[in-house]
């Protein structure tokens, strides 16, 4: 069996990645267009970036979005970790089926349904809509993602190291914080990042649960895009893409280095005659 790419595979990859990336690259390219018209190249310019940073309204919305995403993903990691732990470790308790249903369903639930149901809840208990309701709403779907990530990590977790800790005198409670949490920490970090992006990206559930004056960046972009194509949005998109791209690429380089280092150490240890 050849490990390299066959022609068909190469075509599939090229086509797939072109489909995924060409639109984004076009967007980035035209954000430096002097002309207001999208289809006319009016020369290189960064003027739309300048205008973007003059736009107090958008900056305010961006700030709210970041605040919301940070709060919701932190809450999601706390609740999602506990939920993932319950899913992985407590194989039988009353209501487990319902519990696992409530964990998995939000992953696929159409956003309009989630949004409407949360809105009706907040209205019927007379909870004024604002940052608080948005945080709750975002947490309710982000925690499922964290729970799934943590659960898969815990399922492949070697339980004997927890038993070893207890055997050496650590109480179960202490074991969780000294052994389990540090070992699964990378899963919590990726869960947090995942929640952060999901929250930062959400339009529908946010529009149902936000109150006046609490428009987030995606909601602002959404209303702007509905009215038509604007060069400022190109610039804004480019900035957001750049931040994510730098973040993801850096993270994967760091991860790869750590992996290479680890493999090297393992090879050396295996080679060492003991």
């Amino acid at each position: 069996m050849t490990k390299g790419l066959t022609k068909i595979n190469l075509v599939a990859l090229t086509f797939g990645f072109a489909f995924l990336y060409v639109p984004i690259l076009i967007l980035v390219f035209f954000s430096f267009n002097e002309s207001r018209l999208v289809n006319v190249w009016g020369g290189f310019s960064v003027k739309w970036y300048g205008e973007l940073f003059q736009n107090e309204d958008l900056l305010q919305a961006a700030w709210i979005s970041l605040l919301l995403a940070a709060a919701a993903s932190t809450l999601s990691v706390i609740l999602g970790t506990v939920a993932g732990f319950v899913m992985a470790r407590f194989t039988s308790f009353r209501g487990r089926t319902l519990f696992s249903g409530m964990i998995y369903a939000p992953l696929v639930m159409p956003e309009v349904i989630t949004g409407l149901s949360l809105l009706l809840l907040f209205v019927s208990i007379d909870w004024g809509r604002g940052l608080g309701t948005m945080i709750i709403a975002h947490t309710s779907f982000c925690m499922s993602y964290v729970a799934v990530v943590v659960q898969s990590r815990l399922v492949s977790f070697d339980r004997s190291i927890e038993e070893a800790a207890q055997d050496l005198g650590a109480t179960p409670f202490k074991t969780f914080f000294v052994i389990t949490l540090p070992v699964i920490a990378p899963a919590l970090v990726s869960g947090w990042l995942l929640s952060f992006t999901l929250s930062l990206d959400n339009v529908v559930i946010t529009s149902f649960t936000s109150g006046p004056g609490w428009d987030t960046l995606p909601v602002k972009i959404f209303s702007a895009v509905k009215l038509g194509v604007k060069p400022e949005i190109n610039a804004l998109s480019t900035i957001m893409i750049a931040i994510v791209a730098i973040g993801v690429v850096t993270a994967s380089i760091v991860q790869k280095r750590a992996m290479v280092e680890r493999q090297r150490a393992e090879r050396m240890a295996a080679a060492a005659n003991d």
């Binding site: 070697d158 004997s160 190291i161 038993e163 070893a164 800790a165 052994i179 540090p182 070992v183």
Partner: peptide, 9 residues
């Protein structure tokens, strides 16, 4: 332990 259960961190 059979797996040695060394704390990896």
């Amino acid at each position: 332990f059979q797996s040695y259960a060394l704390f990896p961190h």
